[in-house]
Amino acid sequence: MLSWLILCSLTIILSYILGSFPTGYLVGKVLKGIDIREMGSGSTGATNVLRTLGKGPGIFVLFIDCLKGVFSISLIYALLNFTTSQNLIPATVNLELWKPWIVISLGSAAILGHSKSIFLGFSGGKSVATSLGILLAMCWPVGLATLGVFLLVIGVSRIVSLSSITGAIAVSLFIVLFQQPLAYLLFTITGGLYVIFRHKSNIARILAGTEPKIGQKLELETRTEQV
């Protein structure tokens, strides 16, 4: 039992480190020799990279940050396969009961890592792309449905932050619709609130009618994170 708990704890830590991988920051350094945190909105996320470095780097960062979420959940499946093959899971442990809670623990660690990266002095992005990757790995119909809402809102409004906030709200409804475990519902509610909280400055600009749309620049002095 102790060995299994230690492995779970180590996997959660690894998930945090994986989420902390500073994709946007590294892209800025490699392509332009800049610290992306000192440009545009100050975020390491895909939207700020898009506005600062262009469409190609923005899409690349979005893709890699999404993969961080996918890989973080894949860790739990690798862990379960390993512990099962090594007979490390006690017979008294109900694996089906515990699995969703372990999954959301790894997902939460990855989200925290992306927004509070250990490699960037606990700064980062808004965890939207990483959250999408987590959802796709947890339950792909929920992930695709949430992505559909995001794309619909962004197609109409052209505002990334509004699309992210709407997706963060819609995801819990999809969890209920697709009859997912209670642990997943609690995760999406908590994660959604976290994403919305990270967008508090964006919400203020949306209400004021000053939030930039795709193709517009966010003034450097604003220094507010976008994604």
Rank of each mutant, 00 (worst) to 15 (best):
L75V: 09
K32M: 09
A129P: 00
P90G: 12
N94M: 05
E219R: 13
I36T: 01
V171F: 01
R37L: 04
L18G: 03
I165Q: 02
N48Y: 00
A145E: 05
H114E: 14
L152N: 07
I165N: 03
L2G: 06
A183H: 07
V227H: 10
I154Q: 08
L50R: 05
I175P: 00
M138S: 14
N81D: 14
G113L: 02
T222S: 15
I6G: 09
T190G: 08
A109E: 09
P141T: 12
L2A: 11
L177M: 12
G124D: 12
A204T: 14
Y16V: 01
L177T: 04
N87T: 12
I34S: 10
L152P: 01
S131I: 03
A183W: 06
L50V: 06
E225C: 08
D65R: 02
A110N: 04
S161C: 02
I214C: 08
G215V: 04
G192N: 07
W4P: 00
I111Q: 11
I12K: 06
K68G: 08
L5K: 07
A168Y: 00
S72N: 12
L67N: 04
T130A: 12
L177N: 04
A91I: 12
I134Y: 03
T190Y: 08
F122E: 02
G133W: 02
T166K: 01
S201F: 05
L53V: 02
A183K: 06
G40F: 02
L95C: 03
F178D: 04
A46C: 00
I175Q: 06
L80K: 13
R37H: 07
Q226S: 12
G58C: 09
K32Q: 15
F174R: 06
S172D: 02
K116Q: 08
M1G: 09
S157C: 10
G42C: 10
S201A: 15
S108L: 13
N87R: 10
L62N: 01
I6M: 11
S161H: 03
M1F: 10
S157D: 08
V27L: 07
F119V: 00
P212A: 10
W98Y: 14
A91N: 14
I206M: 13
V156P: 01
T130F: 04
I196Q: 07
S172Q: 02
I59C: 02
N94K: 07
I73D: 10
V153Y: 07
L162Y: 00
N48H: 02
T190E: 09
P212F: 05
I102W: 10
G33C: 05
L10Q: 11
W98K: 08
I89N: 03
L50M: 13
I12F: 11
H199R: 05
P22Y: 11
I206P: 00
F60I: 10
H114R: 06
L97T: 15
C8L: 14
I196E: 10
S20D: 00
P57Y: 13
V142P: 01
L79N: 11
A137C: 03
I214E: 13
G133H: 04
G215H: 05
F60A: 13
W4M: 11
F71K: 05
I36W: 01
F119W: 05
F178H: 03
L120R: 01
T23W: 01
L75F: 15
L88A: 07
A91H: 14
A168I: 00
S123L: 10
F82D: 09
E225A: 14
L152I: 15
F60K: 04
G191R: 08
G33A: 08
